[in-house]
Nucleic acid binder design. Structure first.
Ligand SMILES: [Mn+2]
Ligand SMILES: [Mn+2]
Ligand SMILES: [Zn+2]
Ligand SMILES: [Zn+2]
Lengths: 138, 138
DNA sequence: ATAGCTTATGCAACTAAATTGCATTTATAA
DNA sequence: TTATAAATGCAATTTAGTTGCATAAGCTAT
């Protein structure tokens, strides 16, 4: 993606434009799938782990990325494709984790179905994670 | 829960009966909510961290516990209320995580709704985690 | 009940990920 | 261009998860 577009995305979210941030953002856009901090470290070796860590946190805060729950213990992050802001993350799509290659993807077109919970419980966010085999691994 | 019942549960799953295992099992039954290894360490200080770690793994294997995905990074485990065996964990219920007290519960009565995924994806397991406020914290 | 075999436990050590403090560098707005 | 606030890198710490090995304990067959 052209550098100008990357910068405008950062600007839109009121983040200072730095090399690390544009590179991280670009990687997320290129890859299309969810990435962990380790993925970033591996593919953007130029930057310190801590800087990548803080970049992820900035992006979370800003609403550029969302955190994807999973049982493996390593946090993964996906691009917010819809308009998200720090206080209003707005995600409603299913996540898919491939048991073969380990990749996690956002299935943007698949909405999380409506559910009900017992009396007394208040719903704030609903996450749905599908484990299985992705098309590339089938 | 009476010691005899605890022992028979362990026996049913072909696990040797030890103090640690009966205490851990008893704690899960008493609490009713999901627990992390840290929770066990805190509440069953008599046992070594590694022993608790291996107890959790044995229980997972045996089908006594199931792992509950969440975005916090610490693994939590819940009792399998239905018949589960090592090769056939059979869970279909929603999990609820309270954003106030942090507790995670199994909503046994709330089934995970059926979903469809894009062509080429194969579903193996579906997890649904609801974040919100639990009745005790409301 | 006991002996013998198998499994569980505790300790120490190690890995990996997440997190913090602080000095230095860099981005941005005046 | 300069002043200010924020981002970065490095070092160090915390936390969770994991493995190896010697010892202790559970279980089964005699
Ligand atoms: Mn997503
Ligand atoms: Mn459950
Ligand atoms: Zn795959
Ligand atoms: Zn609560």
């Amino acid at each position: 993606m052209p550098s100008d577009e990357l910068k405008s995305i950062l600007k839109k979210h009121k983040l200072r434009i730095t090399d690390c941030r544009t590179d991280v953002l670009n990687l997320f856009i290129q890859k299309g799938s969810a990435l962990s901090q380790g993925d970033l470290e591996h593919q953007l070796g130029a930057y310190d782990r801590v800087t990548l860590y803080r970049t992820l946190n900035s992006f979370l805060q800003a609403g550029i990325l969302h955190k994807i729950p999973n049982a493996t213990g390593v946090a993964t992050y996906g691009l917010c494709h819809h308009t998200c802001s720090p206080n209003d993350h707005n995600h409603n799509h299913i996540h898919f984790k491939c048991n073969a290659c380990g990749q996690i993807e956002c299935l943007e077109d698949k909405a999380v179905p409506q559910i009900s919970v017992p009396k007394g419980y208040q719903i704030e966010v609903v996450n749905m994670i599908v484990d299985g085999i992705c098309p590339s691994c089938a």
